[in-house]
C-alpha cells in the first residue's frame, strides 16, 4: 500500500547558479541566499549519536559521567511527557556511548511507559523490546538503530493522530537532551575543535520554530517559561565567534542552561 505523498509546498526554484559546471554537470556553487525557508518535511534533525560520533574521534570521552537520569513522576500533562520522551531517547544514546547495559535496558522500559502515557505504545512496543533485547546482547549498533526508529515512530504516529504539538515537543526534548550531554562533555574536556559541534544556529532555529507553533494552551507548567527563555538565550551562544569557535565560557553557559531546563522538566514544576 503506497502512502499518499503529503501535499506540501515543494521548494522548487531556479537558483542563480554559476554558469560553469564541473565534469559531473553539477554547478560549482549555489547562491545560498536565494534558498527559501524549508518546509517541515524538508528538515531532518540529527540524532545525538551523529554528534557524539564526531566528538569521540577527538579522544575518549567519559560518557558515563554525562548520563543524567533524575527520578520523575508522570502526571496528566502530556506536553511534559512528550518532552521527557525526547529527553529519555537522548539519554539512551548517551548510555549506549557509555556501554551501560542496565541503563539502556531501563530506557527500553521507560519507552514503553512513556509511549503508553502518550497513547502510542502499540506503535513503539516492538522497538522498545528490541532495545531491551539488544542491550542484553550488548549489540550497541542495533540498539542505536532501534532508538532512532523509536524516535521516528513516535513522531510519525503523533502526526498521524494530528497531535502535532506533542510531536514537536518530542523533537525539542530530544535536541535539548543531546545538547546538554554534548555541552557537559565539552565543558569537562574543552577543545576548540570539539566546540565546533555546538555551532548549530540553523538547528536551533528549527527547534525554536517547532516550539513556537505549540499552542500556548499546551504549554502548561512553569518550566515552559524557562523553556521559552532558554531557547532565546541559547541563540547567541550556539554560533561561532569572530575567532571561528564557541568559547569555553559559552560552552559552560550552554550546559548550565540546558541542564537546568532538563531538571525543571523532569521535576515538572
Amino acid at each position: 500500500m503506497r502512502k499518499l505523498i503529503p501535499v506540501f509546498a515543494l521548494a522548487i526554484f531556479p537558483l542563480s547558479f554559476s554558469s560553469a559546471q564541473d565534469k559531473s554537470g553539477a554547478p560549482p556553487s549555489i547562491d545560498v541566499g536565494a534558498i527559501p525557508e524549508a518546509s517541515d518535511e524538508d528538515v531532518v534533525i540529527p540524532i545525538p549519536q551523529e554528534i557524539f560520533n564526531s566528538l569521540d574521534k577527538l579522544g575518549v570521552q567519559n560518557w558515563k559521567q554525562q548520563v543524567h537520569q533524575p527520578e520523575y513522576k508522570l502526571n496528566p500533562n502530556r506536553s511534559r511527557t512528550a518532552l521527557i520522551f525526547g529527553l529519555q531517547i537522548s539519554e539512551g544514546f548517551i548510555l549506549i556511548q557509555a556501554k551501560d547495559k542496565d541503563g539502556v535496558t531501563q530506557i527500553g522500559r521507560d519507552v514503553i511507559k512513556l509511549a503508553g502515557a502518550l497513547g502510542v505504545e502499540a506503535a513503539v512496543d516492538q522497538h522498545a523490546f528490541a532495545i531491551i533485547e539488544g542491550a542484553g546482547k550488548e549489540d550497541w549498533a542495533s540498539v542505536r538503530q532501534e532508538l532512532d526508529k523509536t524516535r521516528k515512530t513516535v513522531i510519525d504516529t503523533m502526526r498521524e493522530l494530528r497531535d502535532d504539538s506533542l510531536a514537536d515537543l518530542v523533537t525539542v526534548g530530544g535536541w535539548l537532551g543531546g545538547t546538554r550531554a554534548l555541552s557537559a562533555a565539552l565543558k569537562e574536556n574543552y577543545s576548540k575543535e570539539g566546540s565546533d559541534l555546538l555551532n548549530q544556529p540553523h538547528l536551533l532555529s528549527e527547534v525554536r520554530k517547532r516550539y513556537k507553533r505549540v499552542p500556548e494552551t499546551d504549554k502548561r507548567g512553569k518550566f515552559f517559561n524557562e523553556l521559552s527563555q532558554t531557547l532565546k538565550s541559547l541563540d547567541p551562544l550556539m554560533r561561532v565567534n569572530n575567532e571561528g569557535l564557541i568559547a569555553e565560557d559559552a560552552v559552560g553557559e550552554i550546559n548550565q542552561l540546558t541542564h537546568g531546563l532538563s531538571d525543571a522538566i523532569y521535576e515538572g514544576k
Partner: peptide
Amino acid sequence: YTLRENWWKGELRKGENKILKHQLFVRN
C-alpha cells in the same frame, strides 16, 4: 555507515532541482 531512519521525499519534473538544508558535523 549507520543509516538514519529519517529520509526525505517528494516529486520533481524533468529539469527541476531542489535544495535540502541539513546540519552536518565535522570529523564525520
